[in-house]
Design a protein around this nucleic acid. Structure first.
Lengths: 151, 151
DNA sequence: CTAACTTCGTGCGTATACGCATGAAAACCG
DNA sequence: CGGTTTTCATGCGTATACGCACGAAGTTAG
């Protein structure tokens, strides 16, 4: 018999994919994918980042981030420059066009956020965020723990 | 200022990707990916399914499921047959080898399930499952609603 | 009965996820 | 100071996600 613990991975996957599909659908008219939105949102939150820092914050794989940056730079939404002090690195920042589009995308995402809220019992969205943060932290920590144990 | 509602999509993404990475890592020694495990688990839950039904239950895109089935059939873990009554369809079922491997994978996934449980406050895992189900259901429903509105 | 519509699996193209490998630059350590 | 290790971005290969298109088969409606 399936316990809640056994069900969780599949349910988490289902929820995430549903969100992803909805977002892709919503952002398609702006020629932006859900994950590109995530990248833009991460950049919008502060000053220029190195690609590695950007990948850490999303969090995504650096190879994937690189591929996405190539696309977004081509669209004129982000710009990469050589790093001021580290010749190995490049900085990434939103262009004015990218900033402008982000604002539109944020608005476009509002119905989704509202829909999620409406699908949940009142007052539980904070609980859900907190619990998901625990899961994300708990699962990300273990990779490091394994490495530490081995070394 | 970011409210819980605004944070939820990113946190959901982070939690899901962390789970996905962990699972991929755990199942790699069996030459199975996290998503292939999802497919095997879906099949293991009952009798043979058509590809469409399998895609609906995972839930995944039919094209993706097809590609995955090609790989898994090649590995001898699943078998596809012509449907007994519908010439358009094929049925998919686990092979004895696939069933056997699934049992091993289920065991291999135990530390992850335990880790998730340990990362959460005691007694909250059921809440999390329930809330995620709401999100998944609420987001999947809307696609249909949009279509109904349009037509 | 037949045309129109729906469903099935397949395949293509594009985007993303990630491991692995590489060369260059930076940091570390004796 | 110089050898070693780490970090950076890049690129390749494989897997997955999904929209779109297509031909074949099944269903529906007049």
């Amino acid at each position: 018999m399936k316990t809640a613990r056994d069900q969780l991975p599949m349910v988490l996957r289902a929820a995430y994919l549903a969100l992803h599909r909805q977002s892709d659908h919503r952002f398609a008219e702006y020629n932006v994918t859900a994950d590109q939105f995530v990248l833009l949102a991460t950049l919008q939150r502060g000053e220029a980042l190195t690609q590695r820092e950007l990948a850490r914050r999303m969090p995504s794989d650096p190879s994937t981030v690189r591929a996405m940056l190539v696309l977004l730079e081509k669209q004129g939404l982000i710009q990469r420059k050589t790093h001021p002090t580290d010749a190995r690195a490049r900085t990434v920042a939103l262009t004015p066009q990218g900033e402008k589009l982000f604002q539109k995308l944020w608005q476009a995402g509002e119905p989704i956020r509202k829909q999620i809220q409406n699908s949940l019992p009142p007052g539980t969205i904070q609980d859900l965020v907190r619990l998901l943060q625990c899961v994300a932290t708990g699962l990300n920590t273990d990779l490091h723990t394994d490495l530490e144990t081995v070394s």
